[in-house]
């Protein structure tokens, strides 16, 4: 189900046909890369302590899935089959290095806190997975949409995690104080009723939150529940 490859389309089909729109909407829910395909979990746990990091990571991964799918789809008829995986790896690595360089140049603070995880986008299974499963068998247009859909599907989860973790872990959103400072308990403010939840800041909490998200998603969307 999740790895379903759309059959080749007839040339007359519009870019935003129903089938193509599904390429974008499917990964948001029914075949979400993180919560359904369980791909790209590692980075979702590591970079979601703060919302700004989550958003930049989501945008970076989306850019790489779109471009990766696009370039591989363009090359799909000339890539020698025997070195196809290496070619995919090179294209993805090339894109990731470009993203990393751009982040270092234009959003240095964020790039500092994302540290190695930008480089590790290369190892994000979503990207290679979509290239192998979709881009190599489809035209560039639909491949871009598929990349966009999967990037957004990944991004939604990251942003959800970022909001919950930053809000309850630091009382902030996008580095701005959201919970009033006098609510937050500290040595200087013993009257505060909320103790910042340090567990939220630790990676395991992200895993628990992903678990809760999967639970909620399956409760609402019963077709995701596997038959036993």
């Amino acid at each position: 189900m999740s790895e379903a490859t759309a059959p080749a389309k007839s040339p007359s089909e519009g870019l935003f046909s129903k089938k193509n729109r599904k390429l974008i909407t499917d990964p948001l829910n029914d075949s979400n890369p993180i919560t359904v395909q369980v791909l790209g979990i590692c980075s979702a746990l590591a970079v979601t302590v703060k919302l700004d990091n989550s958003v930049v990571m989501a945008a970076s991964v989306t850019a790489v899935t779109i471009m990766g799918n696009f370039f591989m789809s363009l090359m799909r008829n000339i890539v020698p089959n025997r070195i196809r995986i290496i070619v995919q790896l090179v294209v993805v690595a090339w894109l990731v290095i470009i993203v990393d360089q751009v982040l270092k140049a234009y959003v240095y603070d964020v790039s500092k806190s994302l540290s190695v995880f930008v480089g590790l986008i290369i190892t994000n299974c979503i990207i290679m997975g979509r290239i192998e499963a979709f881009a190599l068998g489809n035209k560039p247009g639909p491949s871009i949409l598929d990349g966009l859909g999967n990037g957004i599907g990944y991004g939604i989860i990251l942003i959800f995690l970022g909001i919950v973790r930053e809000l309850f872990g630091s009382g902030k959103l996008w580095n701005a104080q959201v919970l009033p400072a006098n609510w937050i308990y500290s040595m200087d403010n013993p009257d505060g009723w909320y103790v910042l939840n340090n567990f939220m800041i630790m990676p395991p909490m992200a895993l628990i939150l992903v678990g809760l998200y999967i639970w909620a998603q399956r409760a609402r969307n019963t077709k995701l529940i596997e038959a036993h």
Binding site: I78, V79, P80, I86, V87, V91, W94, I97, V102
Partner: peptide, 25 residues
Amino acid sequence: IFAIAMCVVVGTSLVIVSQTLKPVQ
């Protein structure tokens, strides 16, 4: 030939990107 061509294209473009952004970084 494909592999060599790919390396040349990828390598060259990365050098260009890196050199252009270096002063800002």
